[in-house]
Simulated scan of single mutants.
Amino acid sequence: MTKILAISGSIRKHSYNAQLAHMVVKHLRAKGANAAYLDLANFQMPLFNEDLPEEDQPDSALELADLFASADAVFIASPEYNGSLTPLLKNTIDWVHHQKLGAFANATFGIGSVSSGSLAGIMALSHLRDILSKVGALIAPTALGVGMATTAFNENGELSDTRVAARADAMVNELLTVRRRGQQ
């Protein structure tokens, strides 16, 4: 069974990006995947600093690195902060990469963003794609930008716009099928 993780670059209550990550998990489970949402609030990590002594390295960073390394796919929902991804998400990527250099090498990564604006977080997704490619991640072709956050989801937690919902379905299918050469 395919093992997939989902995280949000926002830990605020009622985060639209966490809602998107939960929706993706629900769709993955419906297609038979072993999918789980990981709340980054449960993985406390200080600001990344290579000068921290080994004994001060956060255990949660190694735990996340092990989880990423053992996953077949990872979905990341990233809010857009000042045209880029959140400090929380960047710090998480830096810690995970530092703990286990191959943590991003095995999984296919899906990316998405929910934004209150009409541009749907595309600048954050562009930066996230660049950063993930630098740490060796394979990124699924479909990026999921969801604009107009306050009306993006219906009462069932599904995407309101049928075109965006179709893109979400395409991205979910890519998470289940896109693999590096040599991987099954």
Rank of each mutant, 00 (worst) to 15 (best):
A143F: 00
A41Y: 01
E63I: 05
H97N: 14
V146M: 03
L89D: 00
A61G: 08
A35D: 09
T86S: 15
A65Q: 12
S116C: 04
T142W: 04
A103G: 03
N34G: 13
D130Q: 15
V24R: 07
D66T: 10
I122L: 14
K90G: 00
S115T: 01
S118D: 14
A69N: 08
L28R: 13
N42L: 09
A69L: 09
P46D: 14
L85D: 01
A36K: 11
R129F: 00
Y37L: 07
W95M: 11
T151S: 14
S133G: 12
A103K: 07
E55Y: 12
G110C: 07
P53H: 09
F43H: 06
M148F: 15
A35Q: 03
L85K: 04
V96W: 09
L28D: 04
A61V: 08
A143H: 01
G110H: 01
F109T: 06
K26G: 12
P141K: 10
L101V: 14
E63L: 08
D51S: 11
L138N: 03
N91K: 02
A120Y: 04
L88N: 02
K26I: 02
E54R: 07
L47F: 15
K134A: 10
T142H: 02
D72W: 06
K31S: 15
P87H: 03
L88H: 02
I111D: 06
I131D: 00
I111N: 01
G145P: 03
F153D: 06
V74S: 02
A77P: 01
S70Y: 00
D51Y: 10
Q99K: 13
L125K: 04
A61Y: 04
K90R: 08
A120R: 10
P58C: 00
S118C: 03
